[in-house]
Structure formats: C-alpha cells, structure tokens
C-alpha cells in the first residue's frame, strides 16, 4: 500500500511555509499577554506534536503494524495533538473576535479573558515540558501570571457573568439570595 501522508500539514496550519516559531527565553508579564506570543506557542506545540505523531505512526507501520493498530498504539500522542489543534483553533477565534472590537474597556477585559484562556491551557498541559517547548522557569512564569490574572479579573467577575444576559427566571435562587429563597415564609 502507498504510504501517503496521513494528514497534509497544509490542512492544519494557516501559514504552512512559515518557519517554526522561536520563543523568547524570558517570559515577562507583557510577553505572556502578547497575542503573538500566545499564537506562536500554540502553533509550535501543534506542529511539533503533528510531526511526532506522524513519525511514530510511520515507524509502527514500518514494523508491519496495520494503520488502524498504529493509530491505536499512538493514542496518547493523537489525543495530545487533537487537543493542541482544538485549543489553537479556539484561541484564533477569540483573537478574531477581539480584533473586531473598537479600542476601549470591553476590548481590554476581553483581552484579560483571552489571556486567561491561553495561559490556563498552557499551565495544564504537561507536553510543554515533556517535549521542551517551555523550560521549568517558563512554566513557573506562566503559573504566576495566571494567579495575577485571577486577581485582575476578580473585580469584573460579576459584570462578566451578567453579560451572558440570562433572564432571572432561567437561574436558580442560589444565583441570587439563597438564604432568603429558603426561608420559611410562615415564620
């Protein structure tokens, strides 16, 4: 059987001919919140995992395993790759939405939310360390930045959920005054 590529890299990358992104060694707060940095690290992760996955499957097939079984055996890399692709797609969608907004407070808060999404995704992903995309110090920087973002989002938390525009009748009393809602009125 012909060993044609399983997936064409063009299907997964916006800029197939761009060089592999290079990440700065020092991750400052402004770097971590920079959309270009976030995009670069998400693209780097995805591309590297794709290369590892195709390489592993090719090796297994080269040893005589069927394509289906090779996929099964490589399920962990496949899952990591699937997740990397999905998270990159979501980040890109958020950035597109953000770019359409006029400069102002809404755009600023959305930027905080976007950075929270990007950094929490990175913080929870062990493949960044396993495959060397980030160093140990880098991971520590990401973790501290997530903590800072929590503090900065805190004053906006109520307004952000109010923005969902969910009618009161759709929400349970626990979203309002739970104590009052459970008081026995006859007392």
């Amino acid at each position: 059987m012909t060993k044609e590529p399983i997936y064409s890299p063009r299907m997964l990358h916006r800029d197939p001919d761009s060089p592999r992104p290079v990440l700065p060694t020092q991750l400052t707060s402004s770097t971590l919140r920079c959309s270009q940095f976030q995009t670069n690290v998400f693209c780097l992760r995805e591309r590297d995992l794709l290369e590892r996955f195709t390489s592993e499957v090719a090796q297994l097939q080269g040893r005589g395993e069927s394509r289906e079984f090779s996929f099964l055996l490589s399920h962990q890399l496949a899952e990591d790759l699937g997740k990397a692709f999905t998270e990159k797609a979501m980040l890109q969608t958020i950035l597109d939405a953000e770019a359409k907004l006029p400069t102002g407070s809404v755009k600023d808060v959305l930027g905080l939310v976007r950075s929270m999404y990007a950094l929490i995704s990175l913080e929870e992903d062990p493949s960044l360390l396993r495959y060397g995309y980030l160093s140990q110090d880098n991971v520590g920087d990401v973790r501290r930045e997530v903590s800072k973002l929590c503090g900065e989002l805190r004053p906006h938390a109520l307004a952000l959920v109010t923005s969902f525009g969910i009618p009161d009748s759709f929400l349970s009393p626990i979203a309002f005054n739970w104590v009052e809602a459970n008081t026995w009125s006859s007392v």
Binding site: P126, R130, Y131, G132, Q136, V139, G140
Partner: peptide, 14 residues
C-alpha cells in the same frame, strides 16, 4: 497525569 510536577521539579527527565 502530573508529569508537569515531576518535570518542573527536575525529579525525572522527559
């Protein structure tokens, strides 16, 4: 599952 902990603390190598 917690590979990040083990790698970030230098307990083991990739």
């Amino acid at each position: 599952k917690h590979l990040g902990d083990f790698l970030s603390t230098n307990c083991i190598t990739p």
